[in-house]
Design a protein around this nucleic acid. Structure first.
Length: 283
DNA sequence: TGCAGTGTTGCTTC
DNA sequence: CGAAGCAACACTGC
């Protein structure tokens, strides 16, 4: 679910909802997360939230005690800001995203931040703010594609220089090359750029690279504008769906007619990921 | 019914 | 070193 546009949507929601809130309670029933947070409960309690940030697909929630909570939602994670009084969202409780809650922070205003995660791949940890730089450097993440500093020159250097004979889709998904693109947006970006996902990166022509660069910025920006893709169970912090699924052109549309040329969308496997493309529009 | 497929990352292996 | 394969987990849908 959560790729750059979804995580960005969540972070913007967090900024609206939890900045300035005081944490007064902590709960966790997930063994792996408890392990990570062992002995650190006191770092959460009686602190105030001062900032919410995104780096790649990571969410960083900064506290007023020099600590930062770092969350990764992986496949099925959700962050939900919801009232402690369950009667207030009775119906929504049945929805999958409201179940499978494994970690909660309670606030003094009788709301909570709940981390739900069906498949339990997601991670929550707390580190000191001055460790953040090292934390992210260790991940060797590539540049943020939506930053102004991510110019075409930077794109060419970082992306192309690294990638030689790899298939372009695998390169787009490689977080050490470019931060934040996942399977949905990789397929959509390549459709927009009219490039077949299996093309070898070093064989792309200058014009194709320029188009690809433009498509990356365009599709990710659009994804944020439409508040993410809820093909499956993505929800923002208030439980609202995104709307980008209405604009999807190829992802998981196997066998359906291409919106441009009516050719049936193909599904292949690239780097063990389901990959969808139009064999006529994408060369 | 059963098994392939699912949005991610990181560890192991070659 | 880079790159490919697979595991972590639980559910859906063919």
């Amino acid at each position: 679910m959560p790729e750059l546009p979804e995580v960005e949507t969540i972070v913007r929601g967090l900024r609206k909802k939890i900045i300035g809130k005081k944490i007064v309670g902590f709960w966790c029933d997930h063994r792996k997360i408890r392990q990570k947070l062992k002995g650190k409960k006191q770092k959460f309690l009686n602190t105030k939230i001062v900032a919410a940030k995104r780096r790649a697909k990571y969410i960083v929630i900064e506290l007023d005690n020099n600590s930062a909570i770092v969350i990764h939602l992986r496949m099925t994670g959700h962050l939900l800001y919801r009232p402690l009084d369950k009667k207030k969202y009775d119906k929504a409780l049945k929805d999958p995203y409201n179940q499978y809650v494994h970690f909660k922070l309670k606030f003094s205003n009788k709301y909570e931040l709940a981390f739900s995660d069906l498949r339990k791949f997601g991670t929550v940890e707390i580190i000191s703010k001055n460790q953040l730089k090292d934390f992210f450097e260790a991940k060797k993440l590539g540049p943020e594609p939506l930053k102004k500093s991510f110019s075409y020159e930077v794109f060419k250097k970082t992306v192309v220089a690294h990638c030689n004979a790899r298939q372009i889709k695998q390169v787009l998904l490689d977080q050490t090359v470019l931060a934040g693109i996942g399977n949905i947006y990789a397929d959509e970006i390549l459709f927009d750029a009219k490039i077949k996902p299996t093309r070898k990166t070093h064989r792309l022509k200058e014009a194709e690279l320029k188009k690809l660069y433009t498509s990356i910025k365009k599709i990710l920006t659009k994804g944020i504008k439409y508040r993410g893709t809820s093909t499956s169970d993505f929800r923002d912090v208030t439980g609202e769906k995104g709307r980008f699924q209405d604009l999807i052109r190829v992802y998981r549309l196997t066998g359906e007619p291409c919106k441009k040329c009516k050719t049936k969308i193909k599904r292949i496997v690239v780097g063990q990921r389901g990959t969808h493309y139009c064999s006529k529009c994408q060369k």
